[in-house]
Design a protein around this nucleic acid. Structure first.
Length: 319
DNA sequence: GCGTCCAGGTCTACC
DNA sequence: GGTAGACCTGGACGC
């Protein structure tokens, strides 16, 4: 357990529109940084790692969608220097999309027959980044070739068994393990303890790689071009085309068997007969249609399936 | 109850 | 460079 007793706070003013609830507590249930974060009374308690340091995060909504104000309280084990505080705050602001202008995306989306619905339903929802590269990669690998209930079970087991507890503000938030921690176990031990199956070999190799070699942070990946970030991520064990689109702070168009059914219906009016075989075709079609906004389009559609089903009169599978 | 299929992919051997 | 096949596990389904 890690007691995070040193705290600093500031008030952020994101670029409007900024819907706090939609951004930190996404309609589809995707967690912000960890499945164990807590949301109550317009406040989120979560955690993330910046430069290997575990940070407790409390976000409180003080404003409105058009005039957003968010009180940010960050807790760490040791007191941070002024430089470190600035670095941590900058990393968090970037992950929460505070400086992201939704205007250009909305301008394109309002002229698109699919997206015009989702940007109306989810007005002010910003894109957010993973807590760190390793936790994003563990999430992506857990999603591969299995059902959502089993993916969730694998992730929760890894976090509970090998992760770190951020204790602050009277709360206890479990966060993802470090590469060093997981690198201490064999693939067999990981597979047996959390029923990871063949993914244990990927996770073990990934842990050893990131524990022994430097790898760009989320901020560094964001600072480089999308293609360079994707190339680096795909060099990691267990991270292919789909997973790199999930982990990259630039996003992508992460079409898998589940989303191939959804976008097949949206683009062509029906689910593909063979979802796996249709992935390439649907991904290519979507990226051609939405270009640099492909990730935002994917993100907004995935969060709005229920409303979209009703508005378009088609059944989009939620899970 | 039992066997088969397949799910929110990636890697490798083989051609 | 392109592609078939292997890979854990467990729920759904047919019999």
């Amino acid at each position: 357990m890690t007691e995070l007793g040193s705290r600093f706070a500031y008030t952020a003013r994101p670029i409007p529109p900024y819907d706090f609830r939609l951004t930190v507590r996404k309609p589809a249930g995707w967690p912000l940084f960890t499945p164990f974060e807590v949301y109550a009374d317009s406040t989120l308690w979560s955690a993330l790692r910046v430069g290997g340091t575990l940070i407790g995060v409390r976000l409180s909504n003080l404003g409105t969608v058009e005039s957003p104000r968010i009180r940010v309280s960050l807790s760490s084990r040791e007191a941070l220097s002024a430089y470190e505080r600035e670095h941590v705050a900058s990393a968090l602001n970037s992950r929460l999309g505070f400086d992201e202008d939704l205007g250009p995306f909305y301008a394109m989306a309002r002229n698109d027959q699919i997206l015009k619905h989702v940007v109306s339903d989810l007005y002010g929802m910003h894109d957010t980044d993973m807590g760190d590269v390793f936790s994003g990669a563990l999430l992506a690998i857990s999603l591969q070739m299995t059902s959502m209930p089993r993916s969730n079970a694998m992730m929760e087991c890894m976090i509970k068994r090998y992760g770190e507890a951020a204790v602050f503000d009277g709360r206890r938030v479990m966060f993802w393990p470090t590469p060093k921690r997981l690198a201490a176990f064999t693939p067999q031990q990981l597979a047996e303890s959390c029923k990871l199956g063949y993914r244990a070999k990927f996770i073990s190799a990934l842990s050893k790689r990131l524990a022994s070699e430097p790898f760009p942070s989320v901020e560094e990946l964001k600072a480089m071009g999308p293609a360079d970030a994707k190339r680096l991520l795909m060099g990691l064990p267990g991270i292919g085309d789909y997973s790199s689109d999930i982990v990259s702070p630039h996003g992508g168009f992460p079409i898998d068997v589940w989303s191939a059914d959804i976008f097949g219906k949206l683009f062509f009016g029906r689910e593909p007969r063979n979802g796996r075989a249709a992935i390439e075709r649907i991904k290519s079609f979507g990226m051609k249609r939405w270009g640099r906004w492909s990730w935002m389009a994917f993100y907004y559609v995935a969060q709005d399936l229920e409303n979209l089903s009703r508005k378009l009169g088609i059944s989009l599978r939620l899970t």
